[in-house]
């Protein structure tokens, strides 16, 4: 009797879910972009009544899925090789477009003066969390920073790698490490901003790329919104910058 009621409930809920389905815009995105994009999507939903689904995963997984026909409308990645590869495979309406630039952030459990980060790292003995250095752009930026400071060889054995930036954030949030490098977007996120101490590292920027995959009117309207001043304002609130010194990017 109980089982029957339970089954009927499941079926009813499933029917209810399938009925309320309306056209939605599906945005596949790199995990680091999720904090600002959640706010941008919410604002867009409030303004237009469209629904935006954010689907975060590793850029490599998302690319494979898009190549296999995944029903995504827009793809956002911090690594240009993925949108470029998709474009070459005839996916995407136009060439990948530069969306915004992210910054590298430094996290430590104890407060450290910004100018003393290199000397602190020089003598640091514990593990240092960074993102994967072969595929995750923030990992590449972290290693680039350590190299320019002449610290890479000293610290190489202490680095621990998250598969992507959210795994690195997880190591930081769980206090599995006392020092880490992440995306500046983490500084502004409720779960992380009051945890330990964050600083933005100037001079290391990570360009974020956008690729439009479908030409429906709803996906185009969100695409336009992504590049609007309103969206820029949200990105800036999360530590992103539109322009940077011409040397980088």
């Amino acid at each position: 009797m109980f089982l029957k009621t339970f089954l009927i409930c499941i079926v009813c809920v499933f029917i209810a879910i399938s009925c309320e389905k309306k056209p939605t815009i599906r945005v596949a995105l790199a995990a680091s972009l999720l904090p600002p994009m959640e706010e941008i999507a919410q604002r867009f939903e409030a303004e237009t009544g469209h629904q935006v689904d954010l689907i975060p995963a590793a850029s490599g997984v998302l690319s494979t899925q898009i190549l296999s026909g995944a029903p995504y409308d827009i793809f956002l990645s911090a690594n240009k090789i993925y949108p470029d590869a998709l474009r070459q495979a005839q996916k995407g309406i136009e060439a990948p477009k530069l969306l915004i630039r992210g910054k590298l952030a430094f996290w430590s459990a104890d407060p450290i003066e910004p100018e003393t980060i290199p000397s602190f790292l020089q003598t640091h003995k514990g593990r240092i969390a960074i993102a994967d250095t072969s595929l995750a752009p923030y990992g590449v930026a972290s290693v680039h920073y350590l190299r320019t400071q002449g610290l890479l060889d000293t610290l190489r054995g202490q680095l621990v790698f998250g598969e992507n930036i959210s795994q690195t954030n997880l190591m930081i949030a769980s206090d599995a490490v006392t020092v880490g490098f992440s995306a500046s977007s983490a500084l502004f996120h409720p779960s992380l901003k009051d945890h330990g101490h964050w600083q933005v590292i100037e001079g290391q920027v990570v360009p974020q790329w956008a690729l439009l995959l479908t030409a429906t009117s709803s996906s185009k309207s969100f695409w336009t919104y992504l590049f609007s001043p309103q969206a820029k304002k949200v990105f800036e609130k999360f530590g992103y910058v539109e322009e940077n010194d011409r040397m980088s990017g």
């Binding site: 389905k21 995990a31 999720l34 904090p35 959640e38 954010l54 975060p56 959210s166 949030a173 779960s191």
Partner: peptide, 18 residues
Amino acid sequence: PDETRVASIAIYHEVEAL
């Protein structure tokens, strides 16, 4: 969402979203 986001994926999704 509502199609292939089962519970295990939803947990992963929330972790990704911090």
